[in-house]
Design a binder for these strands. Sequence first.
DNA 1: CAATAAGTACACAGACCAGTATACAATAAA
DNA 2: TTTATTGTATACTGGTCTGTGTACTTATTG
Lengths: 198, 198
Amino acid sequence: MTAKRKSKREHLVETAQQLFYREGIKGTGIDTVLEQAGVAKRTLYNHFKSKDELIIATLQRRDEEFMAMLKAGVRKFAGRQQGAAEFAGVLAFFDAIDEWTTSSQFSGCMFINASAEYPRQDHPVHVICAMHKRLVIQYIEELMAPLKLENPHELAVQFAVLADGAIVNAHTTSNSSAAQIAKQIALQLLTLNYQVSH
Amino acid sequence: MTAKRKSKREHLVETAQQLFYREGIKGTGIDTVLEQAGVAKRTLYNHFKSKDELIIATLQRRDEEFMAMLKAGVRKFAGRQQGAAEFAGVLAFFDAIDEWTTSSQFSGCMFINASAEYPRQDHPVHVICAMHKRLVIQYIEELMAPLKLENPHELAVQFAVLADGAIVNAHTTSNSSAAQIAKQIALQLLTLNYQVSH
DNA sequence: CAATAAGTACACAGACCAGTATACAATAAA
DNA sequence: TTTATTGTATACTGGTCTGTGTACTTATTG
């Protein structure tokens, strides 16, 4: 019972996530989600008291999914980096972004898109987006630990800015090399900072 | 007569632009635009055959306005740069972005936001956004002309990625130093490339 | 089996949406 | 002053949206 309840809820969130990502949040009606999921409207409103609550749930799910994808990508690409071994983690991060942004289903960053749809900075959606971006920066910092730099946070923010730029550029201008461009910049920054700190 | 017609039209586009920017395009109804502009609905539909046409007009207006703001900012900040004089233009570009992203009315890049609201790459809005971004890259290339580098276009794309990253980061995470971070990276890239080319 | 929980089907409310129809007023040029 | 243009006010159409109410069915659990 509890298992099936979870399953229905999960299924709704998963379906909504896909539609919100592909068609935008405001561009996706509740009825479309229900039709796609094959679930009754009442069931949705038994699990979520409003569309906003469903949106929040999809963003939380996307956050977990994205971080998992990112970490898997880093693991996958870390071994294939040339140059200093200490750089492998961060460089693999940009390869993971590259693989994502060049994939056929890519439609921008769900959090950037959501922020754009809800521009007000105090809106719950915007707050969640900011939180997600903070988690990404934290992860980049972890990837830079082996470098033993003096200013890991500052550099992590720089890489986050680079990554966001690559993602947005890839989406808006359909530029398939945006992430590799960002990676090249990251490599130069790493080299410079490594020289300074060692 | 023609003057007044233009004025009404202009006023509608200006009002719509502000509302679309602050509240999002899909978040702004036609009636809100009309109320804010103090114009009758019929007048709007005499000038534009649909909301989509109004959207297009606002984006075109925003493109002109933004490029003008950018160029004015570059003129303003170019003289205040330290270091190599050849770098002044590009560095001033990031100061202009900085001034914009830290202003109180800042609500992200209208084109990035619009792209997020209309994720489909073949949608007219998306196409216009891509065009705008191409114009920005072109302008950055012009700013780099005095540097006489071998690969001005590649570097301009790098700066564009940086700028997009700064804009998005500033908007989503309310980071008021995003543009200065991007500027620092740009300075390092300029220095490296200048050394190589000269 | 009985009782409780969860899901379904479907109609419907109330709000908002883009866009139209109509009749009238202001304007400005001829 | 006549005439064509432009704008206004307002009601309305048809559609979509989120969310609710209700009666019925299925599934689970004790």
